[in-house]
């Protein structure tokens, strides 16, 4: 019973990972890719590790709780650092973007 429940959680997590990576391939520029992939892969990894918490060796479940907290803190921070770096290094937005407040304020 518990194994079935954790397999269901892992399946949903894998599905979200797949959506994030499809976004990584399909979307047009760095910022959109970063958004889609960071959100979906973070939730997918947390669901997979939650499956370990439900049924697994008890040492592994404590470590995966620690890993969930760690990933929830670090993945958005890495995304923020990367987007700021690509702004500073001069990567342009997609040509169909509607507004860019940052560039207007820099002038």
């Amino acid at each position: 019973m518990r194994e079935t429940l954790s397999l269901i959680f892992m399946f949903i997590g894998g599905l979200f990972n797949l959506f994030g990576c499809i976004g990584l391939v399909r979307l047009p520029d760095v910022y959109n890719r970063l958004q889609a992939s960071t959100k979906c892969v973070t939730l997918g990894t947390c669901l997979t590790l939650f499956g370990i918490i439900i049924s697994g060796p008890i040492n592994a479940s404590l470590k995966s709780l620690l890993c969930i907290i760690f990933i929830l803190i670090t993945a958005p921070t890495a995304a923020h650092a990367l987007s700021r770096a690509s702004i500073k290094s001069g990567v342009k937005l997609w040509e169909k973007s509607v507004i860019n407040k940052l560039e207007e304020d820099k002038k």
């Binding site: 990972n17 997918g44 990894t45 590790l49």
Partner: peptide, 22 residues
């Protein structure tokens, strides 16, 4: 920057592999 995004996401996918092997 695109390449670095790919490497970052690949690192989190490896964590998924380790969890499923566990």
């Amino acid at each position: 920057a695109d390449r670095v995004v790919g490497i970052d996401i690949l690192g989190i996918i490896v964590v998924n592999f380790c969890a499923i092997v566990t």
